[in-house]
Write a protein that binds this DNA or RNA. Structure first.
Lengths: 142, 142
DNA sequence: CTTTCTGTAACAGATTCTGTTACAGCTGTC
DNA sequence: GACAGCTGTAACAGAATCTGTTACAGAAAG
């Protein structure tokens, strides 16, 4: 499967908004953001819509419209972005129900759910450790 | 995207082989495994092929053919299974190259690679903590 | 040599993601 | 209040991937 790039796009958008803000530019339009990400403005608006619903960005309508961060970039973690974009969990259970007459088929789904839950918690814990400000700092040294 | 169920299928297969072995059944055919997972035998053979290439199972040909674990189930971790089935990493970078004339576009890929690397390492560390024997034990109490 | 099952190719259907066009709706400014 | 600028979202196309299925050549035990 093609890896999911939604977290990447959303993080790119937020980092760019953070930098623009630091440079004194209050808002950016989806066209301006799209120019940095090098994709279609609608893709950016979809991503920004996710981020707005999660309370991470604000939008201004009318003339001079555009987007800005709703919170300081130091306080926005990658976990919030991850949840905002609504990615699928990394592992899925069986698509078709296993044979419930087999002892393994009967009990494996709760067993795997627990194991997968531990892995996802470890992943989420690590996503908490990086903020948009961290990403921006790392970005600008490269 | 539909979550990837390859790790689930492979783990199911290994747990079933482990239980059969404990019950004195030396080998299982792909048809027998498919009956427990409730899917097509070719799906199982594809999964078993991955596991064989990783050295986790052995195959016997000819009459009375079938599959068996190559190592004790206590020593097979979910990380090995995860690597064997060759899943995509959970996060992908941009599909199209970002705008390199933008400071964010220029530096964000290495920055994100590092952050994603930390997350994947946390995930892999946690996958090491569960073995096929653990999964089978949890499965049988349910 | 026969039988049994593996290994893999080829293909169909479903699903998902990105990218694109199009257009209605909101809101400052004049 | 009309206009202009940008958002929000629907609709659709193309590419990619995954599961499931059929088919068949190949290996090896007896």
């Amino acid at each position: 499967m093609a890896a999911n790039s939604r977290l990447t796009i959303a993080t790119h958008v937020l980092a760019w908004l953070a930098l623009a803000q630091r440079r004194g530019q209050e808002v950016l339009t989806s066209d301006q953001v799209a120019a940095s990400v090098n994709t279609n403005p609608v893709i950016i608006r979809r991503s920004l819509g996710d981020l707005r619903r999660a309370g991470l960005v604000e939008v201004r309508h009318g003339a001079g419209a555009g987007w800005s961060l709703a919170r300081p970039p130091e306080e926005i973690t990658l976990l919030e972005v991850y949840d905002a974009v609504g990615s699928e969990p990394p592992f899925g259970l069986h698509r078709t129900e296993p044979n419930l007459e087999c002892p393994v088929g009967r009990g494996i789904r709760p067993a795997l759910s627990e194991a997968y839950g531990r892995v996802e918690r470890a992943m989420r814990r690590e996503l908490t450790e990086t903020s948009i400000a961290d990403v921006l700092r790392e970005t600008l040294v490269n």
